[in-house]
Amino acid sequence: MTTHTDPGLTQAGSPSAKGRAFEISIAADKALVAEVRHSVRASLTSWDADEIADDMAVVASELASNALKHAGGEATVRLRLTEGQALLEVDDGSARPPVPRRVGADIEEGRGLLLVQALAADWGWRQRASGGKTVWASLSVPAGCPA
Rank of each mutant, 00 (worst) to 15 (best):
L88M: 07
R96E: 15
L32N: 11
L88N: 03
P7K: 02
T5E: 14
S14R: 11
R111H: 07
V58L: 05
A31T: 14
A121F: 04
A42H: 13
S61P: 00
D91K: 02
S16D: 12
M1T: 12
R37V: 12
V77Y: 04
R78E: 13
G124C: 05
L79G: 03
W47D: 07
L81V: 06
H70A: 03
L87M: 10
Q85I: 15
A143I: 08
G84T: 09
V141E: 06
L139M: 15
V141G: 07
L88E: 02
D106K: 12
Q127P: 10
P15C: 03
M1P: 13
P15I: 00
H70T: 06
L81E: 01
L139F: 09
V103E: 10
G112I: 10
W47E: 02
H4R: 12
T10M: 07
L63G: 09
L114I: 08
V59F: 00
E35I: 04
C145F: 01
G72N: 04
E83V: 05
M56C: 06
S46L: 00
L115C: 03
G110D: 06
T45H: 01
G73Q: 11
D48A: 04
L87H: 11
R37C: 06
S61D: 07
G73K: 14
W47V: 02
G19F: 01
A34N: 12
V90F: 07
E108L: 15
L63N: 07
D50G: 12
V33T: 11
I52Q: 01
E23N: 02
T3Q: 10
L139W: 07
R96N: 13
W125D: 13
P97H: 05
A71Y: 07
A95E: 12
F22M: 09
